[in-house]
Design a protein around this nucleic acid. Structure first.
Lengths: 145, 145
DNA sequence: CAGGATCCCGTCTGATACTG
DNA sequence: CAGTATCAGACGGGATCCTG
């Protein structure tokens, strides 16, 4: 298969870094997907839908996304305050590669599972036994939402 | 634009997690790209090409990739020992979405830069002024290699 | 309701030293 | 050369308290 794309090389190094940093943040991916699915959300709506994210992390994640121009933060000066987050066009376009990654993961999950199982069987199976609920639980909640 | 892909939803939650964890690791992406470009590499070859990665992180990253079935580790029982790492077909296929992400980053780097600059100008510009050389330098080295 | 400020602990990561 | 083992510091991220 052809893995060589237009600019496989050096030129986009600096550009790739921040993006990787963003999507490397698990919360960010969940948030982007949530916002991409059903439109704008309020702070505590997101919080509830994700399930286990701390308000701190949600705030930080949203700030980062806002900073990068991926989401907009709209404050409605009402009482009580109402703040809505929404994907920008740029944010929506990011969903394409994110989903591509998701598709890849889905398509090859059995291969990876098998590979990991085999590796763990051969070597010490002591490592990475069961990811803490904090990692698995919340993600499930989000994607099921 | 259409961001809705085949299985946008709940079904691939568990599958996506490990992949995100992998590519979230900055070293992993660099390694995969390096291996994808010019074929098999020896341990210290990779080390030199990446430039600033600690041997510890390189070992851990390679172990993780091996565990996930993305690279093979071949030991040649010679003196001195010779160990070669190479992408598996699965690993090569991962380059497709990784490159897609890279393409996206490259295509939108100016937008993101502008967004960040504007955000930082409006709010406190104190955060994320200049990433330490440790973050920018090594990556550059790799992609230029 | 939205989120800023703190405290605190576990993990990640780099530096160093040692082994086959 | 290709690692493993150990130590120490940086950082991420959760829990909690408090404000507009």
């Amino acid at each position: 298969m052809d893995v060589t794309v237009a600019h496989d090389g050096p030129e986009d190094c600096a550009a790739v870094k921040p993006v990787l940093a963003r999507i490397g943040d698990k919360w960010v991916v969940l948030i982007v997907r949530l916002l991409g699915r059903k439109g704008p959300r309020r702070f505590n709506e997101l919080r509830r839908e994700i399930g286990t994210i701390s308000q701190r992390m949600l705030t930080l994640s949203l700030r980062g996304l806002e900073r990068d121009g991926l989401v907009t933060r709209t404050v409605h000066p009402t009482i009580p305050p109402r703040v809505e987050y929404e994907l920008t066009p740029l944010g929506r376009s990011l969903m394409v590669p994110i989903n591509a990654l998701g598709n890849w993961a889905f398509a090859h999950r059995e291969e990876m599972d098998a590979a990991r199982a085999r590796f763990d069987r051969l070597h010490g199976a002591a490592e990475a036994p069961a990811p803490p609920a904090a990692a698995a639980g919340p993600a499930d909640a989000v994607f099921k939402g």
